[in-house]
Every structure is written in structure tokens, then in C-alpha cells.
Amino acid sequence: MIFTIAGKDLKALFTSPIAWVVLTFVQLIVGYGFLKRFDEFMEVQKQLLQLASPPGFTELVAVPTFATTAAIMLFAVPLLAMRLIAEERRNQTIVLLTSAPISILDIVLGKFLALLGMLLIILALVALMPLSLSGATKLDYRLIGSIVLGLTLMAAAFSAVSLYVSSLTTHPIVAALGAFGALMAMVLMGENVADNLQTRGLGVLATFAQVFSPVKNFEPLGKGVIDSYAIACLVLLTVLFLAFTVRQLEARRLRG
């Protein structure tokens, strides 16, 4: 049942122009960045060889390319998520789902998977850029794998937050702006709040704050460090906001 809803919403994403616009946009920006860095890499390649342990293609070209993708996700996810619940409530089509023999949890998970599926498509297209050179150079597959895992987990966390904001309003645009605001707040907070609390000796609060810093939790994975605490934080943030979404939709049934 989850997959029926996921399939329906993924299809709906592709019938609207938003998905195509976002896909095009991502390909243009990331593709341009990739080619530019590739070009620069070719120029400095000879000088790099004189270093003792020179950074390779993966560090100099692939990693920044994925970093750009992470930044783009920050506004792409709210845009892709905005209609998922807000528009269904606005058009009162959500009644079709809530009248069918499906639990609210399944509805939320279905929509979450649709969004994550869309983001994985974007991620796959991005990953194809460095991977297309696998025959020409030696790629660090472990580093790439770690980054892709990190990006996937971060995309999941962004999706859960955006889905929750979409359940709060019946205006898709408000949902997009709200979700973007919430994610930005988390990014800014992640920069210093956790460190700040740590230096003041509020270790418990710092631990708590780190859950809400998805970008900070992505950083170790982005460097190829499998930090299980950072992974747990990303998963926890995702689960937390999915639970909020379920609660919000349940509350609509109770409040009317």
C-alpha cells in the first residue's frame, strides 16, 4: 500500500513541471561546476605530481561536485515536497486516501518514499558525472560511496522536514518557503550552536542540538569518515519529523 501511494506521488511529481525544472536546474549547475573543476584539474595535474601524496581526481573534482548537490538540495527538496500534502488538502483529495483502508503512517511513508525516490534520481544523475570517467582515472570508490550514503541520509532528513511543513498548511508556496526556512535555520544553527553548547559544558544539550544539524552530520560522511553517531542523528531527525507528520494528520481527524 505504501508503494501504491509512493508510485502515485512520484508520477504526480513528473506530471507537474516542478520535477523537470528542478532536474534541469540541478544538471545545469552541477554539470557546469563539474566540467569547470575537471578543466582546472587537467591544468594543475602536472604540478600535483610533484607533491608527496597528491590529492586525486576524486578529492578535487568529485567531492566538490557532490558538495554543490548538497547545497542545491537545500532548496530543491522544499520545492519538490511542497505539493505532497498541502495541495492534497487544498483540493480535498486527501479524503480519498483517508477514506481508504490505509493507515495514516502508510500514507506518510508513501509520500516520503516518493520524494526520496525523486531525490535518488537526482543523486544518481549527479553520481554518473564522476563515474563516467571511471575508465580514464582511478576513482576512490569508498569515498564516493560514503558521500552518496551521506547525501541520501541528508536528503531523507530534508524530505521528512519538508513533508512535515507541507502538512501544516494548505498553500504549497507557503509550505516551500516554510520548509526552506526550517532547513536554513537548521544549517545556521548547526554551524555553531552545538559547538557553543559544548564549550559551555552543556554536553547533553549539545548532543540534542546535533540531531537538528543535518548538514553538520553530513560533513564526516562527506570526508569519507563513517561516523555512526552522525548517521544515527540523521536517521533520528528523519524518523522524528515523519512522526510529527503522522501526528499532524491524525490531529486533523480529531480537530476537524
Binding site: N91, Q92, I94, V95, I102
Partner: peptide
């Protein structure tokens, strides 16, 4: 969930 499987519903605004 079980109860809803026996129901067909046309709301005021068709979904």
C-alpha cells in the same frame, strides 16, 4: 482500517 474497507465514500467535493 478494517472498517473502512467496507465503505465507499463520495464527499461533498469529489476527491
Amino acid at each position: 482500517v478494517e472498517a473502512k474497507s467496507h465503505i465507499g465514500y463520495l464527499p461533498e467535493t469529489p476527491p
